[in-house]
Simulated scan of single mutants.
Amino acid sequence: MSNSRPLLQVIIASTRPGRIGAAFGHWLADLAREHARFEVETIDLAEVNLPFMDEPNHPKFRNYQHQHTKDWSAIVDRADAYVFVTPEYNYGYNAVLKNSLDFLNQEWADKAVTFLSYGGIAAGTRAVQQLKQVVTTLKMVPIFDSVNVAFAPTKLTDNGTVAPDRQMNDAAVQTLDELLHVTQLLRPHHRTDAPQADGDAA
């Protein structure tokens, strides 16, 4: 196993105007850097700007035709673990996040993942439950711990930065600790030959 620190990608899912997800994503990324056990990248799906799925071949083959897919593959492939920063729309997660997951296959496999969800009283947890079905089908390993922010707008300052309470900070540190533990177990076993999931279709 490499002695270097594992690379964690904090992936901001929301792309809508006026979104608050970016603030929570940058807050968690900064906290992960202070945690000092991961190398940390912040990936903003608004900047990645993938089109709706336009690859003719099933992603399991990695026979990508478009440069935007090749670029996205290279970004995801280099990471050892992920945090998806997800809103909740109508009891689910957003379409941009699903599209970004579906573009790839092998690049996600055998890597630890967790979530920072945000919303109203449910704190985005219903979106997370749906996402767990998707990430396990991609052979990712979701950990139990996550950060779930209820009444998310109340956790922001007037200038749009996050003002976390103690519960948020404690949850984030506990989540990063567990994510590191599972990442270290999985890291020697990353592969590039993940088989197609049963029932998956082109």
Rank of each mutant, 00 (worst) to 15 (best):
V96I: 13
Y82T: 10
D71K: 13
D80S: 05
Y64A: 04
Y93Q: 01
F84W: 14
Y91T: 13
A79R: 00
A23E: 01
Y82L: 15
K60G: 02
Y82V: 08
Q9L: 11
F24Q: 00
A74P: 03
F84S: 04
E34N: 10
P87V: 06
L45H: 01
E47I: 15
K98Y: 05
S14T: 13
P17E: 05
P59Q: 02
R19G: 11
D44E: 12
A81P: 09
I75D: 01
D54N: 15
P51L: 09
N63Q: 15
D30P: 03
Y91V: 08
R5G: 00
V10F: 08
R33C: 02
A29I: 05
S100E: 07
H68I: 10
H68N: 12
E88N: 04
R33T: 05
V96C: 06
I11H: 02
D30K: 09
D71W: 06
D77W: 03
D77A: 15
R5C: 03
A22P: 00
Y89D: 04
S100G: 10
P17Y: 07
A29C: 09
T15G: 07
D30N: 14
G21I: 07
E41R: 09
E41V: 05
R37Q: 15
G21K: 02
A36G: 13
R33K: 12
R37P: 00
V96L: 00
R16L: 12
A29R: 01
F52P: 02
M53T: 12
D77R: 14
D80V: 07
E39H: 14
D44L: 05
Q9V: 09
Y91L: 12
K70A: 10
A74D: 14
K98E: 07
A74G: 04
V96T: 14
R5K: 15
L8I: 11
S100L: 03
L45D: 00
L28G: 01
A32C: 06
T42Y: 05
G18V: 12
N90F: 08
R33N: 05
L31K: 08
Q9H: 14
A74V: 13
V96A: 14
Q9R: 14
P87Y: 07
A46G: 14
D54V: 10
G18H: 10
K60R: 15
W72F: 09
H68F: 11
L31M: 08
D54A: 12
D54Y: 08
T15Q: 10
E41W: 10
R37F: 09
I43E: 00
I43D: 01
H26C: 04
A32G: 03
F84Q: 00
L8G: 02
Y89G: 01
I43N: 00
N99C: 05
L31P: 00
Q65V: 10
A23T: 06
A95G: 12
N49T: 05
G18A: 08
L97D: 03
Y64H: 14
S100F: 09
F38S: 00
T15W: 08
Y91S: 11
P56F: 02
D80W: 04
S73V: 13
V10I: 15
R37H: 15
P17A: 09
A79Q: 03
A32Q: 03
I43T: 13
A46K: 11
P59A: 12
